[in-house]
Each structure stands twice: as C-alpha cells, then as structure tokens.
Design a protein around this nucleic acid. Structure first.
Lengths: 136, 136
DNA sequence: GCCCATAGTGTCGAAAAGGATACCATGAAT
DNA sequence: ATTCATGGTATCCTTTTCGACACTATGGGC
C-alpha cells in the first residue's frame, strides 16, 4: 500500500488476548510456567526439565518472568548457590490460561513427519486426511 | 511471540502448552483470532480492526494461520477483489483458549506510562503499588 | 592444590521477525 | 482519461532473538 494511512490511527485499543500473550511470549515461558505450576523449583531442577534450553536462555526467560511479576526469585546466600523460583499470586492466576493451552495442545496437536500439526480429531471428515502443517 | 518456536516442539514433543503457543505465535495472531471468533471478515475489515498492522504483516499472519488449518481463505473472483477469512472447525476449537487469554488480559493487564503491566488486582498488597513492567 | 556443584554473566554472530515503502491488476464510476 | 477500492507482492533494511561458547565466584571434600 502506498498510503501512509496507518500512521493516522496511531491509537491502538489494547487487545486483551495480545496483552496476555505479551507475557507468555518468549521461547520457553510456556513450559517454564507449566512446570512451576506444580511447585517451586531450583534453577537446575528447572534446567533438567528443559534439557535443550541453554543456561543463558533459561536465565533470560526467568528474569523476564520475574520482571513481569509472574514469578519470584529467592536467592539463598549459601555455597553452592541456591535459587528458588516460584510463581507469585499473579503467576498462579495464569493457571486457567496455561490449562487451556495445555488442554488444547494435548487434544489437538501431534507430530507427524517432523512437523507439528493439528490433529483435527473433532472434525467429521470425509475427505482425505488433510494434515495442515505449520513449520514447527 | 515469536522466535523460531519452530524447533521447540522438536525439542519438546511433550509440552502441550508450547504446542499450542506454536500456533498462536506471531505478532498479531491473537487479535486476528479474537476478531474472527465473531464471524467471518474480509481482508480490509480485519485491517480496519487492526489499524497499526501493516498490510504485509497482516497478509503474512493470515497465511500462516491458513496453512496451520486454523482459518480458511475464500477468494471471490470479482472486482474489486473480495477475500473472506473464516475460522475452520480447528480454529473454532481454539475458542476456550482465546477466551482464557482474553479473560486474563482484561482482568489483569493494564497500560501505564506506555508500558504493559500486570494490574495485580487480586493481590492483597500492602507495599507500594509495584508495577511490574514488560517492554511491550 | 585441585576438582566439584551451583547459578550465573559476557561476547559474538547467524537467523528470524518485523517495518517502511513501492508497485501491481482489475473494472466500475466519474 | 483518471481515479478509486480491494487485496495483495517485492525489496530493502533494522531490530530482535537465539544459540554456541567461554568465563566467573564460592566453599567443601579429597
């Protein structure tokens, strides 16, 4: 488009969906919250649950969640270091959201031929088994 | 949201939360689905609801959602062109997820000083009103 | 004196995502 | 003949994200 019309309407009414996604955004936040819903975890406990996340990344995601007020970080001044991560009240309030995400994923997502696809089990299909893929 | 969540499911076939986020990932997918839950929309109708999304981005997000099987794209061979976007059964099955996201966002997120923060209304706070910010 | 575990930090570079801008095709209305 | 609306593409460029890898501090046990 050649008309800079978008600039005129700079004001964008906040979408509550995006508002929430905003806090879940980041590569590992979903899984992190999923695990923390079951109770507090130390840094390396979490790490062992996410074998392919680099330490740097895990730290980064945790710091972002902490800054957002979703989890708390408790440092014990001992050696070797001990740091506990635990959901705050705000974090626990996300439980229905995480549950909804988990429920849909469990029911509808599967992996086929190296792709993540929607299972579409609920669809009364007659046509060939379409496998709508997404590149992840 | 964003980032090659691509490799994610490969690394974690088991996390249903990330599996779902995988499909919602992308800058505007949340809002798009939110609007489409209320019925089919033409390209420019959608665009008017998302004033700050560029046409290129909107097209891109829609194509990704289409490829994932979440929405359908119907082209009418008329002039000027008419293209309808509508949720598929798979897309409609996301309704509880979108609702959960929207509900949490409405209740807990607010904008202050240009930052998106968690309102924390449910927390019985005594301390100064901490505003945990996230840069989006 | 050396190694271990924990929980990090710092730097670099590749890759992906996102934004700005320009261009296209059609036919109807003016 | 020109303009308008629709629903796009094509480039180019900047920003953000992610991953690899190296490095750090501490105190206890051997």
């Amino acid at each position: 488009m050649s008309r800079p019309r978008a600039k005129l309407t700079k004001d964008f009414p906040g979408c509550p969906v995006e508002s929430t996604l905003c806090f879940l955004d980041g590569k590992w936040k979903g899984v992190i919250l999923f695990h923390l819903l079951e109770g507090k975890l130390r840094f390396n406990e979490l790490r062992r649950k996410l074998p392919s996340v680099t330490q740097r990344m895990l730290t980064k995601q945790l710091r972002e969640l902490e800054e957002a007020g979703i989890l708390s970080r408790t440092v014990f001044p001992v050696v070797p270091p001990r740091v506990d991560y635990e959901l705050t009240a705000a974090g626990r309030s996300l439980e229905p959201v995480i549950s909804a995400l988990a429920a849909w994923g469990s029911k509808n997502v599967t992996r086929e031929d190296g792709q993540t696809v929607i299972r579409l089990a609920y669809e009364t299909k007659t046509a060939p088994p379409e496998r709508d893929a997404v590149d992840c």
